[in-house]
Design a protein around this nucleic acid. Structure first.
Lengths: 356, 356
DNA sequence: AATCCTCGCTAAAACCATTTAGCTATCGCT
DNA sequence: AGCGATAGCTAAATGGTTTTAGCGAGGATT
């Protein structure tokens, strides 16, 4: 008795008095009401060109569909067409949301605009879960796959047959040529140019990275590019950093510690922080030291994290264009596949931490 | 060449010499290889009890399925069974992510555990998009619907026939009895009890609400409950607020302004902030005034926002149990529907803003 | 008058899995 | 030998849509 679950779906209409669960209206219902075949109804509703059905037939079918509130059953349609108007967004972490959310949001918006729907799957970066996620998506006949990484890096994609268009979002994979990344190099340049534009060319401290210490450490490709942009722009401005401090983890605590260290030995004119959280820590240390932002010390940073707008004065930062990237992932998936690496410009967000 | 993976799924077998893009393996293939009928294969693979197929048949089918890497086509299965192992998460904003992310994350985790998959849809709270989202989900035969609101409140659910189990997450609707909310009343009590436990019973300022000003203003039900808990606990502790300040929007700027206003006229012993962002602004104002946290002024707040852990000292706060709520939404959907309102306990997160 | 074309439409197959109904061979029993 | 029961399996229907192949009627062409 317990395996009632095994029974077929109640085939017959429920008893009176129970909640009325009306049956789905099908194409056959529409056709019947219109007095035509399902073939005709299908062709008309899918807007097939070059069919020879009369204008009258069109009118009848549309009227019937509207009056019954017909909606095609996508699963059934998928069976024939292999198209589900569904795409899968597989990411390592939705968790670390500060990063993820923009990507998802952009992709969601793009999907909605293209009349698609998005399956979201999280893998925690664990290969076993990655495999399950891919299979779950493929089982559902998705029209495309987006592999999103929360920190831009090379992503390991398990070696499963994937037969649908695939885009790497905020990451790369040797297996899939299409990837979307922030234009870190130009972003890096922009940060330095911002300082130069404010007349600051001396006394700049780099917070978050130190060539000597970091050699050999793994850093994502994007950080490498960001630094390349920074260094090239510094060279172009004819200046160098007065100090470079690195830390393992770019969290506020470290920004605080590093800044205190800096202040012991010198009096910087500006801090170039590799992310907003480091900058946040720096704010606290500068406050404690009685230094005014931006009069005594200016700050420029990266990410355009939420906290950047909470700080006072607001933090000038080179934003990660996550939303735009997410949107682009969809349009690349759905549009003509251009096997190329797309670099999305990082917006410059001006706030009070830089003198004008 | 390189983008062979990109090609559309070929309808017909490709010409000789082209890369062999194997067709999906179907149940019929498995049955054929096992030398049995599809009926037998289906019964065996779905683990149907009480069938009389031989152990040998079981072995053969499983072997065949494994060797072909068979995966059932869920769309086809859904056609018969009406079950897709997919549930839809429809929210007003994923955007304001600080709120949303926990809910999604929890739901995602719950779904994965239950071997389901989640469709995420965003409506921006716009009725037209809500209707589209619901229809898109229903078209795909989802097994359940979750309506999530980013700020707990009554949610307007458009009047469309919905024939699948539905749960309101962080919101309520007269139409759907099952809803999951934070236990704001107990959370409110907890905040006051925290202060009392630290020996603070006088000089407490309430930041974010003022009965006089706020009368008539719309505030969500949960805030009402939170305040009821706060006031009951204050009464139980035999004390009252020394001041109550309200603001329209609970953003850092307002916390800053309100706190400065307070400091002009009195010297509070503690600030009870209605959310972490207000508290964040308060920190800045207290810093400026040279007051030490928690020695001069203690703080307790709500939400356990990300910034709460960045502040120094860390902010003691009553957290929103979003992740747990999301997880619960799934288990309510998939388990026996208990038409009841579920209140999830708000965790007390102790940090340095309260003296010990 | 026979043939061909076009128009307007439909029957039926196909997609893939599940489920119902039922078939055949064997065994046990009288 | 005859009957019924059972074990072990399968044919066919089903779900909802798209798509292929083609039908019948009427008009034009030869």
């Amino acid at each position: 008795m317990a395996n009632e679950e095994w029974r077929a779906w109640p085939r017959k209409r429920r008893k009176w008095g129970e909640v009325l669960a009306k049956k789905r209206v099908t194409l056959a219902d529409v056709a019947r009401l219109a007095g035509l075949s399902t073939t005709a109804a299908s062709m008309i509703l899918t807007g097939r060109p070059d069919t020879r059905l009369s204008a009258e037939a069109h009118a009848k079918v549309h009227a019937a569909a509207a009056s019954l509130g017909y909606r095609p059953n996508i699963a059934a349609r998928a069976l024939r067409t292999d198209k589900t108007r569904t795409i899968a967004f597989i990411s390592d972490y939705v968790a670390t949301t500060r990063f993820a959310s923009g990507l998802i949001r952009g992709a969601l918006a793009g999907a909605e605009q293209a009349q698609h729907v998005m399956l979201v799957l999280e893998t925690g970066g664990e290969p076993a879960r990655e495999i399950q996620a891919i299979e779950a998506a493929l089982d559902r006949q998705v029209d495309g796959l987006i592999f999103a990484a929360m920190r831009a890096r090379e992503v390991f994609v398990p070696d499963i047959a994937i037969n649908v268009p695939t885009v790497m979002l905020n990451g790369t994979s040797p297996r899939f040529p299409v990837s979307i990344l922030p234009d870190e190099y130009r972003g890096g340049r922009a940060a330095v140019e911002l300082l130069a534009g404010a007349g600051i060319r001396e006394g700049i401290v780099l917070l978050g990275y130190n060539e000597k210490e970091e050699t050999g450490l793994f850093r994502s490709e994007t950080v490498t590019n960001r630094l390349a942009g920074i260094r090239d722009a510094m060279a172009a401005a004819g200046t160098t950093f007065v100090a470079e401090l690195s830390c393992w983890n770019w969290e506020p605590d470290h920004g605080y510690d590093l800044t205190r260290t800096v202040l012991k030995s010198l009096k910087p004119r500006a801090l170039l922080c590799l992310n907003d959280r480091l900058a946040f820590g720096a704010y606290q240390a500068l406050d404690e030291a009685g230094l005014a932002i931006p009069e005594d010390v200016a700050l420029v940073s990266f990410d355009n994290d939420e906290i950047a707008s909470y700080l006072r004065p607001g933090l000038t930062t080179i934003g990660l264009p996550h939303e735009e990237m997410g949107r682009m992932a969809i349009s690349l998936l759905l549009g003509t596949p251009t096997p190329a690496r797309v670099l999305v410009e990082m917006p410059v967000v001006l706030r009070g931490s830089l003198p004008r």
